[in-house]
Computed example of a mutant assay.
Amino acid sequence: MVMVNLTIVNNSTAVRANVIAIRTNSIEIGLLKAMMIENLKEKMKNGIAHFIFQKKNGEFRECWGTTQAALAKAMSNGNGESREVFKTTAFFDVTKGEWRSFRWESLIQVF
């Protein structure tokens, strides 16, 4: 019996993987982190996700965030551009009660 692992990459994931690969000089890291972001975005869409990213100043930030539709609608004014345009992912930080974002390549771990 031959076992095959298959990973399906959608267009958004491919774009993220390419941006991260350029920023980190590693195709492997680009693909790995892009897949982590897909996992994180799905978790945040369905509830509160726990994750860690590295801030621009080098500090590590542990977060609990969500993008659930009801909360996002209640906590945003709907103006402005998507954070994806800036190669970042936005989330509502439930501990700070504010919207935040992180650069794609800075994601360290999703729990």
Rank of each mutant, 00 (worst) to 15 (best):
T89K: 03
K96F: 06
G47T: 01
L40M: 04
S101G: 07
S12L: 14
W64S: 05
R83F: 13
N79K: 14
F111I: 01
A14G: 05
R103C: 09
W64E: 10
V94F: 01
A72Q: 07
K55T: 07
T7E: 12
N5T: 10
D93P: 08
G80M: 04
R61D: 05
F92E: 00
A21E: 09
G65R: 01
K33L: 03
I48P: 00
F102I: 07
K55A: 14
A69Y: 01
N18K: 10
R83C: 15
N39T: 11
N11M: 12
V19Q: 15
W104C: 02
E59M: 12
V2S: 04
V94E: 05
V19D: 15
K45G: 03
Q109A: 10
E98V: 08
F86I: 13
A90L: 09
E84K: 08
N57E: 13
T67V: 05
A72R: 09
A90C: 03
N10K: 13
I37F: 02
A69R: 09
K41G: 05
M36W: 10
E105G: 02
V4C: 06
T67R: 01
A90Y: 05
A70T: 06
K55W: 09
C63S: 04
I37L: 06
V15P: 08
S26M: 04
A17S: 11
I8H: 09
R23A: 12
K96Y: 11
F91A: 00
M36E: 13
E28N: 03
S26A: 05
V4K: 10
F111W: 12
V2M: 08
F111Y: 08
T95D: 11
E81G: 15
N11P: 09
E62R: 08
I8E: 15
A69T: 00
A34Q: 06
I27Y: 02
K45D: 10
M44C: 04
N5R: 10
